[in-house]
Amino acid sequence: MAAAKQLPGPQDLSDDEREALEALLFSLADDEFVIAERYTEWQVRAPTIESDISVANIAQDELGHARLYYDLLEDFGYDEPDLIWERDADEWRHSTLCELPFEEGDWADYVVRSFLFDEAEYIRLQALEGSSYPRLADRIGKIMAEEKYHREHARSWLERLCEDDESRARMQDAVDRLMPHALTLFAPTDEDIEARIDDLGIRTENLLTMREEWLDEVVPRLESVGLHVEEAQLPEQYDVHHADFDMPDELGRDQSHTDAWFDLYDEFTKSYRELGRHEAAKIMKDPDDE
């Protein structure tokens, strides 16, 4: 692919360039922040002490990744309250996969969700390594190195939970429930803006191609452990052929969300609101505020 022209620093972008970057960065950052928020619900509740520590650590990594993307949005003048604590719930752009509550006590839900998410994230990161926006491209290698362990963790649990029939049946339920929402990871924020993100080389693969790559990765892997994906035809490489899947009513990316999101948002902003805060309390200043 021809290398796109390098974009300038944050202060020298045109309005169109900045709008495209913001849409992409909010999608990336919000996915990480919201899924981490959900993952933390497993702390002290995961089935083994190792998995408990793993899920806590993965949540912390995802928050770290969210921060790396939010830092880039702060370049445009936003501060932490603008980005998180005071941003209206209906302005968030994360995929609905990240916001759904876990089925109560269902570790299969966590395993399937993290598997679908981490495989998608890896494909998305590969398309950002060569981004024309240097401040974004620079941080992708670090994130990918951490994501490698997340994929390994999810894949290993995927296999273990498909070892017996009862457990596999619960995994299948989770796949049926979560798959439509996972597809929203590749839904557009807005068709024009997505096309501009590609034209400007901010991302080196478009959403449709990434979705195909992701299906080619996750569908055979799910099938290899005895799970199946409704409507998915067996993929043939390099061919755009997957059936049109049914998408949920709310896509997330376009700022439409399920009711579960509004409840989650109320929960994690509760202390901030009830204490009457107008700025994020910090023990120390942030290095990026320098």
Partner: peptide
């Protein structure tokens, strides 16, 4: 050392 480093602000200070 990693992106989620909780000591980010402490180290900076």
């Amino acid at each position: 050392t990693y992106t989620g480093c909780p000591a980010r602000n402490m180290l900076r200070d």
